[in-house]
Amino acid sequence: MHSEPARGQAFSLNNRRSPAHARVPSVVQSLHTHAVSQVPFSVEFNPPRDAAGEARLWRTVREFERMHPAFISMTYGAGGSTKDRTARITGQLAQQTTLLPVAHLTAVGHSIAELRALVGSYADCGIRNILVLRGDPPGDPLGEWHKHPDGVEYAEELVRMVRDLGDFNVGVASFPQGHHRSPDLATDTAHLIAKLRAGADYSITQMFFDVEHYLRLRDRALAADPVEGAKPIIPELMPITSLRTVARAEELSGRALPPRILERLHRAAGNGPEEDRAAVRAEGIEIATEMAQRLIDEGAPGMHFITLNFAKATREVLNNLGYHVTAAPLSA
């Protein structure tokens, strides 16, 4: 099994707990709380690139705050390229909203000391939920992965490191079609189970567009380990709103969309010199609604929406599903 960080390097951050620490629920606890009347949903934001993007993000945050997601997460740029901005905004989300933030932490490009310092900064803000990812190489997500000389090689090690640092709740990534670096699905499933055994409480999947891939992932995890495999596997969805977001979806997922999905979107786009954006958007919302309803019917523990820092598409999907989402867009 992969080696752990040297024990001599470990220390606890428990003495850095915020006064509100005892009141911070875990993601799993929040899922249970929100599941009383409906399958819970959660949303993912991206670090904004500039002041205008940050202002838009906060408008979106306030809109979602009135929609009561089970949790929110803030992504982390390749190679830690948005580390400082991610840490600052995630801390503000914890301190200035009623939302439950999940901080991302990636191994790529970071020493163990840097990773510990970042976990410490999260702890200082009262954040106790961390999503641990190995991360993709900067520049080329499909390129060769190189361990930092003083870092960790595998997400499993990072899970143990975060657990050693204090009373944190840890999530990891899972891959319905297998990670592109895994030679086969059996190996990919073994990696997921290893991360769960290391102390992860749940996983969030990579984005997908065929619910069958999610269901088979869930079956594989349960077959590999009935205890660890029963931990929540939260499916990640992104409503398609234009053909441009098709390319973005394929970039984020590392997988081509299923032909039948592409056919529906291109048919909606029409044969004119420019795509029928309204029709493509309507079809994308319908596809996301169909997927979400199937996931609900199949007993998924929640739905995690990639928002690209906008609320409208997610709100429309939830409305289609019969959720009582009444939050209207806030004025600029």
Score class of each variant (00 low, 15 high):
181 R>G: 07
159 V>L: 09
267 R>L: 14
173 A>S: 14
57 L>Y: 04
196 L>D: 10
305 F>N: 08
287 I>A: 10
253 S>W: 02
50 D>A: 11
78 A>R: 09
119 V>I: 09
177 Q>Y: 00
270 G>V: 10
144 E>L: 14
45 F>I: 06
18 S>W: 06
168 F>L: 03
156 E>M: 12
10 A>L: 15
94 A>F: 04
297 D>F: 05
329 P>G: 13
88 R>S: 14
205 T>K: 01
265 L>E: 07
235 P>C: 05
50 D>S: 11
328 A>T: 08
115 L>A: 11
269 A>N: 12
138 P>S: 07
316 E>G: 03
281 R>F: 02
52 A>Y: 00
52 A>K: 11
197 R>M: 00
219 D>P: 00
161 M>C: 07
161 M>S: 05
47 P>V: 11
164 D>V: 01
95 Q>D: 07
328 A>Q: 15
308 L>V: 12
300 A>G: 04
150 D>T: 06
265 L>Q: 06
262 L>S: 12
93 L>T: 11
94 A>V: 05
136 D>C: 04
128 R>V: 10
102 V>C: 12
323 Y>R: 09
66 R>F: 04
122 Y>N: 08
108 V>M: 13
155 A>D: 03
202 Y>Q: 04
171 G>Y: 10
299 G>L: 13
255 R>F: 08
194 A>E: 12
66 R>W: 01
5 P>V: 06
48 P>H: 12
324 H>N: 14
195 K>H: 03
266 H>F: 13
154 Y>T: 13
18 S>C: 14
149 P>F: 06
330 L>M: 10
309 N>R: 13
24 V>I: 13
178 G>L: 03
305 F>M: 00
135 G>H: 08
114 E>D: 05
79 G>V: 08
137 P>L: 11
152 V>W: 00
191 H>C: 11
20 A>L: 12
54 E>W: 09
255 R>D: 03
295 L>G: 06
98 T>K: 15
161 M>E: 14
23 R>L: 11
149 P>L: 06
244 R>T: 14
40 P>Y: 08
223 A>F: 01
36 V>L: 13
275 E>A: 15
29 Q>A: 14
99 L>G: 09
91 G>L: 09
116 R>E: 11
37 S>C: 00
173 A>D: 02
123 A>I: 01
174 S>V: 03
81 S>L: 05
298 E>S: 11
124 D>Y: 03
198 A>K: 02
231 K>Q: 08
213 H>I: 00
286 E>H: 13
115 L>K: 08
255 R>W: 05
168 F>M: 08
276 D>V: 10
155 A>R: 04
26 S>C: 12
205 T>P: 04
228 E>F: 12
286 E>R: 15
68 H>D: 10
178 G>E: 03
307 T>H: 01
284 G>D: 12
314 T>L: 01
218 R>H: 02
146 H>L: 06
226 P>Q: 13
45 F>N: 04
329 P>C: 03
303 M>N: 00
123 A>Y: 00
300 A>K: 00
117 A>K: 06
252 L>F: 15
